[in-house]
């Protein structure tokens, strides 16, 4: 049997296992609701039809598009800033001393704590979503790029001197290709964080996207619909991660 075929079987087997897990959890959920163990939660028998209904409605797809668009914009902006800053910090000990403590302070600020400030500054619209998402998405990329670059600097310090590489050449031939895998991993983690924050700010303040739909259904006491949106948001996150993971695997050299 060819390697790709056996790889495919393995992939199918692992997705099947995943489905078994989902089915098991759904069974527990159904049992708990039916046995009266949890209150105020609709049963799967109510939520799944609500989800199928919503999947046929245009609001869900429009909201999904909006949330993913905000997530993508936030991740893209964060990536550009983080790659520039991370490379600078990783390449130069002076930059590390200059920016290191600022970075290490700011990264412990919970992004949700910024929501009120950002809303005041940028209003109740997409700008705020992107800003908060980007703040959350910044750190995984920045830390990954900075530590990969700094490892490369130490590891290849003597070699790059012997080869008499100027800083530009060093950047292009050593740091960029060497830090690429860590950067991509950082982007994948960043996109997940950005999605979470975008949904959160939509729930709290920006009347668009999946977060808003979720909140709206809850406020209208349409609980099956609300849970349908919760489930759907999870599925969107899963798909996003899968796509980025596949991209990451293609680009890795290790």
């Amino acid at each position: 049997m060819s390697r790709t075929a056996s790889g495919l079987t393995a992939a199918i087997r692992s997705s099947l296992l995943g489905l078994v897990g989902v089915a098991g959890l759904t069974a527990v959920w159904a049992g708990a609701v039916a046995g009266g163990l949890i209150d105020g939660v609709p049963s799967p028998a109510e939520v799944f039809p609500a989800l199928t209904d919503q999947l046929q409605a245009s609001e869900l797809w429009r909201a999904t598009g909006h949330t993913l668009g905000m997530t993508a914009a936030a991740t893209a902006i964060a990536t550009v800033v983080a790659v520039l800053l991370g490379t600078a910090v990783g390449m130069s000990a002076a930059m590390d001393r200059l920016l290191g403590s600022t970075i290490n302070t700011l990264r412990f600020v919970p992004p949700v704590a910024l929501i009120p400030v950002v809303l005041l500054l940028m209003g109740f619209g997409p700008g705020s979503e992107i800003a908060v998402g980007a703040f959350a998405a910044l750190w995984p990329v920045l830390l990954n790029v900075a530590s990969a670059t700094s490892d490369l600097r130490h590891r290849f310090e003597d070699m790059t001197k012997i080869e008499r590489l100027n800083p530009v050449r060093k950047l292009v031939t050593v740091y960029v290709p060497g830090a690429l895998p860590a950067t991509i991993t950082g982007v994948r983690l960043a996109a997940a964080l950005a999605l979470i924050l975008v949904v959160a700010i939509e729930m709290l303040a920006v009347p668009q996207g999946l977060g808003h739909q979720l909140r709206f259904a809850g406020d209208a006491l349409q609980l099956p619909t609300m849970y349908a949106y919760i489930l759907w948001t999870g599925v969107v996150g899963l798909l996003l991660n899968t796509v980025l993971l596949a991209g990451e695997r293609r680009l890795r050299w290790t």
Partner: peptide
Amino acid sequence: LGFVFQDHGRALLPW
């Protein structure tokens, strides 16, 4: 001038 390092990990680019 050429330099051969004791540890090739510090010289060869893995990518």
